[in-house]
Design a protein around this nucleic acid. Structure first.
Lengths: 179, 179
DNA sequence: GTCTATAGACCGATAGAC
DNA sequence: GTCTATCGGTCTATAGAC
């Protein structure tokens, strides 16, 4: 998962376009145009469109995993949970227009369905939030928190809110949900 | 917005395919195949793909509007709020695999951005939840609740949960968020 | 690592018969 | 309301030069 500079340009352009047009609505020509090269140059980095989609999805997953890793090193369970929630909120607010549509794109959802690393990150995340309880209620609560954070930042109702206020509201909601 | 039987078949097939492949990843040929007719027959109902997307989006919006309308007839503000939340949860749980990806599809989001009826329904929804307060915090809270409900039902963590338990968890979350 | 050029399939959309 | 047939354009992907 270490990308060359050229691969990084492809993945960055792809993520931006996926967020704007969806995965299915993004062509290799559009990615090439966004970078300023030809399609053939893109194909030299990745042999198929699916490989680009996978690399883009895994790049986003890596960002979340980094947040999980930092949280796991916190000195207490409570500190770990707080660090995780703050990190997730920051990721979502930073990528306001992109995170939600990419995470919910049916193609990406399909890729992650049988993706072991994705499931492992989700399990670590759930453990940080709610401890070793892996029952239905704990899984539902985790899903709700993830959906609320990643989805709310995209809603037209918050389009004119500044990042600071949006961040505060999301943290307040998360605290209330986990109390 | 009253659809003929043939138009209804097109919109229903389109919604199913949009959820599975995204709007951009769904072709008119796929819609025609799903119904069991040719592309030309689909074009006889709608002149462009955009018209199909709009009709599909408005059909989903109409379902939400119906829930809002029922809630508005409740005898008290509290009863109205409860009815709205229950109706939204039921809509999301019924359409588990479809609601989230359609609501978050970049193409649909773009269609709704300047769509006056959509904004009107959202405002009525926010008023039912939080009264006449249209400030940033109220809008953020509304966005969070909508995102949590519509997004959580799609998460792999709840894929094996039955509808009843998922419904209970979502209602518990909503109550906690609005208390 | 980037280019030009191309192959073959599929795209949205239309014409016209039944 | 559905069909066959077709248009021009774009799609993913490849070959081969620099």
């Amino acid at each position: 998962m270490v990308l060359t500079a050229a691969q990084n340009r492809v993945v960055t352009a792809a993520l931006e376009l996926f967020a704007r047009h969806g995965v299915g609505g993004t062509s290799l020509q559009m990615i090439a145009d966004e970078i300023g090269v030809t399609k053939a140059a893109v194909y030299h980095q990745y042999n198929t469109k699916d490989e680009i989609v996978l690399a883009a999805a895994e790049t986003e997953l890596a960002r979340l995993e980094a947040v999980v890793e930092v949280a796991e090193r916190a000195p207490s369970a409570k500190a770990a949970r707080d660090a995780l929630v703050e990190g997730m909120v920051d990721l979502a607010v930073e990528g306001r227009r992109t995170v939600g549509s990419i995470l919910n794109d049916p193609v990406i959802v399909g890729f992650f369905e049988d993706h072991a690393p994705f499931r492992r990150v989700m399990t670590r995340l759930r453990t940080l939030l709610l401890g070793d309880d892996s029952g239905p209620e704990a899984r539902a609560q985790t899903a709700i928190l993830i959906a609320a954070i990643s989805g709310a930042v995209m809603h037209p109702f918050v389009a004119d809110l500044d990042d600071k206020l949006l961040r505060e509201q999301l943290l307040r909601m998360a605290r209330r949900l986990l109390s």
